[in-house]
């Protein structure tokens, strides 16, 4: 039996052009470069990585908002990347996205009612009364009073807007949800409400979710498994608690060490691993392991061959050749 969602050597490259009249290719940004990933039905996968490592591009590629350059996206065994635009359109209600900025992700000229009605009716036209009833139910589900449905997005706060965006994503009754940093634009006090809402919805509705964040502590809380991304590739993937508590990959260790610990005694003992330099440009990625220029454990072999994402411990995979030694 095939997995619910499978990304097979997924690649998304952006050609970079110079000049306006005589355009010429000046290289390619390998924003997503060979991602291998499986998700079970009902699983929540957390995806972490620094800014610019290709998280959003991966999300948009899975959503087929950008068509992939190579590899394949299988949803319930169907290869989405092989479908023509018409067929993709027909599949779209099955996978929905929640965007980072709730101020930009809602059409300012549409009422909540109209926005949700549009989303619900991607599954077929409904009678007015039934539709209104459904919209009210959806709003209740995401914790908004249904009597507000005739209002416009600008009349709501950021947190409320994100709830509306969540309601819109739920409206077509999708099986897969991709949340791209859904709380990073929100107040800290509201973040946990939204995260708990997403968690509850996924559990209640057996939804599969990819939750993207650059905050590993948020990801640990919500996810079953965590995948760590660096420069378009996966560095490590494994059960959430294990990845955060005993990270295998040097990059994951650095990420984890940057998170303050609430316990003051352990916090004092925390040793930050400071990475040298900035992430390299995806236009010109380093040879071998892409992390080697910043890795504290680098050796000659790391600069030559790109390490595969291999099973190092049960259920835990990492792309590093030195894991046994360090």
């Amino acid at each position: 039996m095939s997995r619910f969602l499978e990304l097979n050597e997924l690649k998304t490259y952006f050609p970079i052009f110079l000049g306006t009249v005589f355009r010429r290719a000046a290289g390619t940004v390998k924003a997503v470069d060979g991602i291998q990933l499986d998700l079970e039905k009902g699983e929540i996968l957390g995806l972490v990585g620094e800014s610019g490592c290709g998280k959003s591009t991966l999300a948009r590629t899975v959503m087929q908002l950008i068509r992939n350059t190579g590899g394949a996206v299988y949803l319930e065994g169907r290869n989405l990347s092989e479908l023509n635009p018409r067929q993709v359109r027909a599949e779209r209600p099955n996978f929905q996205m929640i965007f980072q900025d709730p101020y930009a992700s809602l059409n300012p000229r549409m009422t909540v009612h109209d926005a949700l009605a549009e989303a619900i009716q991607t599954r077929g036209k409904l009678r007015k009364a039934v539709l209104t009833q459904k919209i009210a139910e959806l709003l209740t589900t995401v914790g908004l009073p249904p009597n507000q449905m005739r209002r416009y997005p600008h009349e709501f706060s950021g947190g409320q807007r994100q709830r509306i965006a969540i309601a819109r994503a739920l409206a077509p009754e999708p099986k897969l949800i991709i949340a791209d940093e859904p709380v990073s634009a929100l107040d800290v006090s509201i973040q946990s409400q939204i995260i708990n809402l997403l968690l509850r919805l996924c559990r209640e509705r057996q939804l599969t979710m990819i939750f993207i964040s650059h905050d590993i502590s948020v990801v640990k809380y919500i996810s079953d498994r965590i995948a760590v991304m660096y420069l378009g590739r996966l560095m490590e993937i494994g059960p959430a608690a294990a990845v955060v508590e005993t990270p295998l990959h040097p990059y994951t260790r650095a990420l984890v060490s940057a998170v303050p610990i609430p316990d003051p005694i352990r916090e004092r003992a925390r040793q930050r691993i400071i990475l040298q330099g900035d992430p390299p440009s995806p236009l010109d990625p380093p040879s071998g392991c892409v992390f080697h220029p910043r890795c504290p454990y680098v050796k000659e072999a790391c600069k030559r061959a790109r390490p595969a994402l291999e099973e190092k411990l049960p259920q835990r995979r990492a792309a590093c050749i030195r894991i046994g030694e360090i």
């Binding site: 948009r60 959503m63 908002l65 993709v88 359109r89 027909a90 599949e91 779209r92 209600p93 996978f95 929905q96 996205m97 965007f99 980072q100 900025d101 930009a104 992700s105 809602l106 059409n107 300012p108 549009e118 989303a119 991607t122 965006a165 819109r168 077509p172």
Partner: peptide
């Protein structure tokens, strides 16, 4: 804008 991407995601014409 993200709301246009959201509209595309819904599979609207």
């Amino acid at each position: 804008q993200e709301f246009v991407e959201a509209a595309v995601s819904l599979g609207l014409s």
